[in-house]
């Protein structure tokens, strides 16, 4: 028996919006610690890892570890039927072949339930090692989204370079080239507007912009985004989900042959 009640149901709607274009089918894993997902995109270039901790739910009952295969397009269709202020409860029976999403309006005068068929998904679970990153950049998520969107009108790939001067995003294409440099700044009024750079050593990596643009669909989940980078390793693009968890996107770099 599984029963997870999320008062801020809009978070789940936003999570689905953030990942449904990157991943088609995925297993949601439910355990004592929380509700999580790990999935690669179809071309195996990016990986998404979601965690919603059990303590972030108003009610969290998970009698035994359960892995539920879901088609994210279909799940998103169902969650779109929930109001933004609705409380969402996810229910499933052990060994069942369906999951139920229950939506309650804030005033409790409307209750809906949507049952979705589960599917068997054969997916490989990857171990992500703890890494000391060469550079970690925290910046406003809207700013990062803007840069990725702007640069993708010029080129297909971006070089992200972190140095003591700041973080530089560079691209080039048929019509020309572009560089955007963000320097560290400290905002007295609002921490969310800060760009903070922690650098142990300079790092420069090349990535496909279309994946980064896809990750920025998570912008609505958090005012800030963190980019963690090390030489010749995947970048981690992390959005914290208020009080409950995070969504992390890992993107493999482009490396000289």
């Amino acid at each position: 028996m599984l029963e997870l009640r999320l008062v801020q149901g809009s978070l789940l709607k936003k999570v689905l919006d953030a990942i449904k274009d990157l991943v088609t089918d995925a297993n949601f894993d439910c355990s004592e610690s929380g509700f999580s997902l790990q999935a690669m995109d179809s071309s195996h270039v990016a990986l998404v890892a979601l965690l919603l901790r059990s303590d972030g739910f108003e009610h969290y009952r998970c009698d035994r570890n359960l892995s539920m295969g879901m088609n994210l397009t279909n799940m998103s269709k169902m969650l779109k039927c929930a109001g933004n202020d609705d409380i969402i409860t996810i229910k499933a029976d052990d060994g069942g072949d369906s999951v139920t999403f229950m939506f309650e309006s804030p005033s409790q005068d409307k209750v809906s339930d949507f049952e979705m068929k589960l599917m068997d998904i054969d997916s490989e679970h990857l171990g992500i090692p703890e890494t000391e990153y060469h550079a970690i950049v925290k910046m406003p998520s809207a700013e990062f989204a803007r840069i990725c969107r702007d640069l993708s009108t010029i080129g297909d790939t971006v070089v992200i370079s972190v140095s003591k001067d700041g973080v530089k995003f560079s691209t080039s294409g048929d019509i020309g080239s572009a560089n955007v440099v963000c320097r560290q700044n400290n905002s007295v009024d609002n921490k969310d507007n800060e760009t903070v750079i922690e650098m142990n050593e300079p790092v420069s990596l090349t990535f496909a912009l279309r994946y980064l643009n896809s990750f920025t669909k998570a912008t609505t989940l958090s005012n800030t985004v963190t980019l963690s980078m090390s030489k010749e390793l995947p970048v981690v693009v992390e959005y914290k989900i208020a009080e409950i968890g995070h969504i992390r996107f890992y993107l493999a770099p482009k490396i000289e042959d």
Binding site: H125, P234, A252
Partner: peptide, 14 residues
């Protein structure tokens, strides 16, 4: 020419 790497190259299957 830079080549796109696969993500599974960096992580091990568990």
């Amino acid at each position: 020419m830079k080549k796109q790497q696969s993500i599974s190259r960096f992580f091990t299957a568990t």
